[in-house]
């Protein structure tokens, strides 16, 4: 890989990082509005408010960057970057098409992705603690509890796929993929997707930012560009979770003409899943904190373990 090619790949990933979350965010604006019988943004940019998020970004940049007097300045200011950057790094390793159509193939891709995504939550924790605000602190605590509860089923579900494919590398998994993996791993897919939603604190798992109780959780004290970073990280998170579910459970680039159109299938599946994320947000009310915890420990983890056992049995039956 030459230096130029590396640079090109990095720029491509950065473009995806900057553009796709905005597309998802705009889709959320419009889809959510129509699901509620509204129109959503109609002014910015002229045609059906397509530039709403650009306008939002401009607004956020103009706002004053406030740090509360009692806050821990450095930690407070560093937190948005810690929350956002891991997702950028994760995007680097998600394969889009066959034949090295990926930012950078990593040998233990699944591990890498899950590990780096776990760091992102540190940002929320830092924000929650450093804001010197009790609502922020509560939000941070809830974030931590939720992360610890949902990381495990997510890992187990991902492990099930890795076991089925016999490799930890994301392109490697896709090369092994057969269509019947979808029904085989469907429970794992459900667990992974739901746990991913919970890690992103998306509704109905948004107890850490429950606005009717704790304002906006860990992000209460943030304004301007730093607040925008947190929001952006949520939407990049949707992209990452959807793309990962696509790659691990829905066969990524597999579809008609995978060599020419593989990238298209990946992107289509990813956006379909992102649409499901939005749909779930519009439809379901927020889970209470105890329901959240019970759901993770008594539903998702047993399901993930059952899926793991099933995968093991089928795998042994196939290979023997």
């Amino acid at each position: 890989m030459t230096f130029l090619e590396m640079l090109l790949r990095c720029v491509a990933v950065l473009m995806v990082f900057l553009v796709f979350p905005l597309v998802i965010g705009q889709t959320e604006h419009k889809v959510m509005a129509h699901m509620q019988g509204r129109l959503g943004p109609m002014y910015a940019g002229g045609f059906h408010g397509w530039a709403q998020l650009v306008a939002d970004g401009v607004k956020f940049v103009q706002k004053e960057d406030i740090v509360p007097a009692d806050a821990d300045r450095r930690v407070f200011q560093l937190a948005p970057a810690v929350a956002l950057l891991p997702y950028l790094v994760v995007l680097l390793v998600i394969p889009v098409g066959p034949g090295g159509f990926v930012g950078q193939a990593v040998d233990a891709g699944i591990f890498f992705v899950l590990a780096v995504m776990g760091i992102g939550v540190l940002g929320s924790l830092m924000a929650g603690w450093a804001s010197a605000n009790k609502f922020s602190l509560l939000g941070g605590l809830r974030t931590a509890a939720q992360l610890m509860a949902y990381e495990l089923p997510m890992l187990l579900a991902a492990a099930s796929v890795a076991m089925a494919a016999g490799t930890l590398s994301l392109p490697g998994i896709l090369e092994q993929f057969e269509w019947w993996w979808v029904p085989w791993q469907i429970v794992g897919a459900f667990v992974f997707f739901v746990a991913g939603l919970a890690e992103l604190q998306r509704p109905p798992f948004d107890m850490p930012v429950a606005d009717s109780e704790i304002i906006f959780g860990a992000y209460t004290e943030y304004t301007g560009i730093r607040f925008a970073f947190f929001l952006l990280s949520e939407y990049v998170g949707i992209l990452v979770i959807s793309a990962l579910t696509t790659v691990l459970f829905l066969g990524g680039w597999h579809g008609p003409l995978p060599d020419q159109l593989g990238w298209l299938w990946t992107i289509l599946k990813t956006f379909a899943l992102a649409l499901v994320v939005i749909w779930l947000r519009v439809t379901f009310p927020r889970l209470r904190e105890d329901q959240l915890m019970r759901f993770a420990w008594t539903t998702l983890i047993p399901l993930a373990l059952a899926q793991l056992a099933l995968t093991g049995i089928v795998k042994v039956a196939i290979t023997s």
Partner: peptide, 20 residues
């Protein structure tokens, strides 16, 4: 849960009530 999802999906296909 499925019923809830159906409701939101059906609403999306209907005309909106927003007065511009």
């Amino acid at each position: 849960l499925a019923k809830g999802l159906a409701v939101t999906l059906r609403t999306m296909t209907k005309k909106t009530v927003t007065a511009q």
